[in-house]
Design a protein around this nucleic acid. Structure first.
Lengths: 208, 208
DNA sequence: CACCTGACTAAGCGCTTGCTCAGCATGCTG
DNA sequence: CAGCATGCTGAGCAAGCGCTTAGTCAGGTG
């Protein structure tokens, strides 16, 4: 049972970057398992069994268990950065763009919470080179949010004492959603996004 | 190198609930290791070596590796609940009490970030009975925050659409601090607490 | 038909894991 | 002094780990 929009991250249709259906099933199984039990508590047998194959088949599609994690983390971070960039670069003033950013950032972390957990809470298990790639993406995300808050302050739309602290708070709220959101949560991802958008604008001192 | 105030959680001085110095050293080593690598990536040899003994010595003081985790999680949650209760029950109106709660909650998650990480991100590794104990404490913490927000709304001091969502946001901000705060962070735990207190009051629509 | 390729499995290797146990030193008690 | 409890170690066991290897089989190509 998953509500993770994995197809958004890894195209299943034939194409340049398409991968065999078996490789896709392994990714899906790894995401669910890493999210539920963590990387180190997940065995290659868990992943392979959930994907309907023997453990050896995993190594035809991926170099190692860590390579699977690296691929999930990279794609998840890339998708998040794209989402943030699109929202921040859209139409409207800083407040309108920030509202859209928080709405989508929050909804994504609720909807794709399994990917979100792997992305945010399994960083320490990444091999060094994969971590470097991902750390750069995280920095870009943080900078994008900081820049938008800075623009709002410059325009007189926001009032914050410290831009970096405010940016931390905004991203924190979204990231932590992937930790606590469950299938039983009464709010839909979109409802939660709208409410968080409202809370964040007030937090930033926006005149609404 | 730790700035975790472990002595607050487990008394080292002689007394009713005092434990041998060796048991305390094991706790300290386990907290650091679980926080940095996670429960499953930590070996009993890691913990024992960091505490300056052989792996076998661990089992004189604790039944298992999981029992160590359970003790850390229980004590950490109990301390957090006490902190929240004291802040919420202090002097002043809802806004003043909420400011104090957020300041202390935030500062604790920055100062004791290693304990905080174990408390918030290693729940899935807890044995079932230990998890039940801890889940009850978490519910109490959430209820305490919700009640304070509810009191503020009733008094006309806060304006929030959904008390539960607002409570989630408030606790989320504090919890997530233990994920990102590091020794290199420029803000002291107390500074961060004050800034977060300010942000939260605005988020709750307090007239400040 | 023979031949090849690519996806896959059964079996298992070398190693690490959590944990146990026999034995040793220390220091308290009668 | 003997006797014993306490805190600990060195050695190592059974189980489970990530990953490899040899081989199977379906399907495409000449």
């Amino acid at each position: 049972m998953t509500s993770t929009p994995l197809a958004d991250l890894w195209p299943t249709l034939p194409g340049a970057d398409a991968r065999p259906e078996a490789a896709y099933r392994l990714l899906q199984a790894a995401v669910e398992s890493f999210a539920e039990r963590g990387f180190h508590a997940t065995t290659t047998r868990d992943i392979a069994t959930a994907a309907g194959m023997s453990p050896a088949a995993l190594y035809i599609h991926y170099q190692s268990k860590a390579a699977l994690l690296a691929e999930i983390s990279r794609a998840g971070h890339a998708a998040t950065l794209t989402l943030v960039r699109n929202a921040a670069a859209g139409e409207g003033g800083p407040a309108e763009r920030m509202r859209r950013l928080v709405e989508q950032f929050t909804a994504w972390h609720a909807r794709a919470r399994t990917v979100g957990r792997v992305v945010n809470y399994e960083l320490h298990a990444l091999p060094e080179d994969a971590y470097a790639v991902v750390a750069a993406l995280r920095l870009d995300i943080e900078r994008e949010v900081s820049a938008l808050i800075g623009a709002g302050v410059a325009a007189g739309d926001f009032q914050v004492a410290e831009v970096r602290t405010a940016a931390r708070a905004v991203t924190s709220l979204g990231i932590d959603v992937s930790r606590w959101y469950t299938d039983n949560s009464t709010e839909t991802p979109e409802e939660l996004g709208r409410r968080y958008g409202e809370l964040v604008l007030r937090m930033l001192g926006a005149r609404v």
